[in-house]
Design a protein around this nucleic acid. Sequence first.
DNA 1: CTGAAAGCGCTAACAA
DNA 2: TTGTTAGCGCTTTCAG
Lengths: 357, 357
Amino acid sequence: MKRGTGRSGSSAAPNGVDVARLAGVSQKTVSRVFNEEPYVSAEVRRRVLEAAEQLGYRRNNAARALASGRTRSIGVITLGTALYGPASLLMGVERVVRDTGYALRVVNTMEGDPAGLAGAVDSLLDQGVDGIVISEPIDEPGGGEAGPLRVDVPVLVIGAPPPPLSSPAVLSAGGGADLMARAATEHLLGLGHVTVHHLAGPQRWFAARDRLEGWRTTLVSRGRNVPPVVEGDWSAASGYAAGRALAQDPEVTAVFAANDDMAIGLVRALTEAGRHVPGDVSVVGFDDIPVAAYVTPPLTTVRQPFDAVAHEGLKRLVHAIENPDADPLPASAPPVDLVVRASTAPPPPAVTGRSGR
Amino acid sequence: MKRGTGRSGSSAAPNGVDVARLAGVSQKTVSRVFNEEPYVSAEVRRRVLEAAEQLGYRRNNAARALASGRTRSIGVITLGTALYGPASLLMGVERVVRDTGYALRVVNTMEGDPAGLAGAVDSLLDQGVDGIVISEPIDEPGGGEAGPLRVDVPVLVIGAPPPPLSSPAVLSAGGGADLMARAATEHLLGLGHVTVHHLAGPQRWFAARDRLEGWRTTLVSRGRNVPPVVEGDWSAASGYAAGRALAQDPEVTAVFAANDDMAIGLVRALTEAGRHVPGDVSVVGFDDIPVAAYVTPPLTTVRQPFDAVAHEGLKRLVHAIENPDADPLPASAPPVDLVVRASTAPPPPAVTGRSGR
DNA sequence: CTGAAAGCGCTAACAA
DNA sequence: TTGTTAGCGCTTTCAG
């Protein structure tokens, strides 16, 4: 092939040898300068930097990765939806990853993806990432029949307990949805509702199950009746469908929806059926999407601290990557933030009087 | 260093030489098998595959990139918001990139990012991508004072005309917002409104300017009065603020908002001010976000074909990457899709000053 | 403080 | 159909 190591011809991108020659030093010294290693005289550093600048030199990352065995990149696996929650999380992750000096690679697992999580992990491992973030994994159709996933880099799972996998470090972040669901439910109970209905998310999602659990345990611990759960698919359309059914039942005076989109569809169905929100029925959402404060009526909801979760989790992941032998950093729980607006109120008088069974 | 090329010791990841030895062939043959090159006998292929399987072999991407000069990855630069439009676009891009066999690297440029677009491009170039997608770039504070960006890979710009940059190929996709804005405006005019007000997006965004332009030219070409523009920041909150002002003006009977979030805030403000939508004022949004059909009243809006745009644009970008010398593929315009729901109606009979019905 | 030499694991010609 | 020989551009090790 003989392209001539360190040609001074101009066509291809310049390399360390070119810079070294121009600066009158060895290639190793160029490497030292760019890695900010100690023991380089100010004078030499200046010459190297100047030569690099002049040539438009830029370190070749593939070569760096090959020689060092590290790619300085982190892969994230998301569900590939533009839903507010997952999208916010991804943006948060990107920011932190970049701030930490890593590059970000993204792979989606669409629901129904044949390869699923294992395929996504594999593709990231092929690319050679130093760590993996799995954002809101969901249960898979043929779930884990292939045994635990073997991963040789640290993994951070956000919004769910870790799936079965063997890895040098498995961390998780973003728990606490059950506590948030509890706050929502208690808010409604505190308003005087006899019980609270729940419009759940798809139960394949851990996030959906977690919220349901928080709701259920709250009712149980208060000795309230636990009404049957209605399950939606996160969409406003499914919330609307659920709302049409719920509207028929006069016992329904309070509903906790597992996300804001469904809550909005629900409110619409109730309103169309002549059930006033919050006069007849109170509704609480989840996420605090940007329009939540501006729909009619403004939605009471639970705000999720996406950025904080991403930041907290990534910090621990990077620590695990860079200190393979150290103990993992401890996790910290995100705060609960119930935003009370106008979609919740005490139950209507007629119903208040009756005692819950 | 002498780690022993092709050691049979088990610790590190196996390489091509290990596989070759086990299969009793040369390393090059292993390479041939994995690249699906022709001229490998079925028997040899089988042996190699078996050996690889047994060893858990996985090609080293860094080495491949170094040797071939291609990373098989595409970088995308987004604004780092969870706004429905940008997020949907990103998901669409991810899917197509993956389907095409490339890996995806993501870098955000937050508004106000000091490094800005140039910094993002630079970071991607450092990582060594084969192509770059710039999604919805916005004007930058100190815009382009550093001269045209020098990029040595093909670039696809979505939702805006290409910024000044020198690159082997500069493509653009996702135009046509002006046509969509025109459709929205004409729908309102067709309903009988004398003119249409516009609640614009931040004018630093090309997407916002494009929609404004489509609206303005429609009015002008119809000989209608062009009312002053109100500018929001895409948020429902800004739509609400604009709505409070607009509600004071009895001349306002129709408003075209540059996105659905602002439209929702706008509707809320109008309603609170006693101006009924669509009885007194008609409102059209833009994007068709998932909740648009379920807010009160269901929003008439323009649906954006994010997936189609991503698919169409990426196809051309990949073509440009893989056929550096061929002519670029021609662009095709996305379809215009106005979704008429219940937030638009003919203007009220008496346009001067009364409210309600 | 600086440099020389030896790879990292793969692909690219060129033989055989 | 298969193998040989060079690198790709950097980091690592070990000497000065």
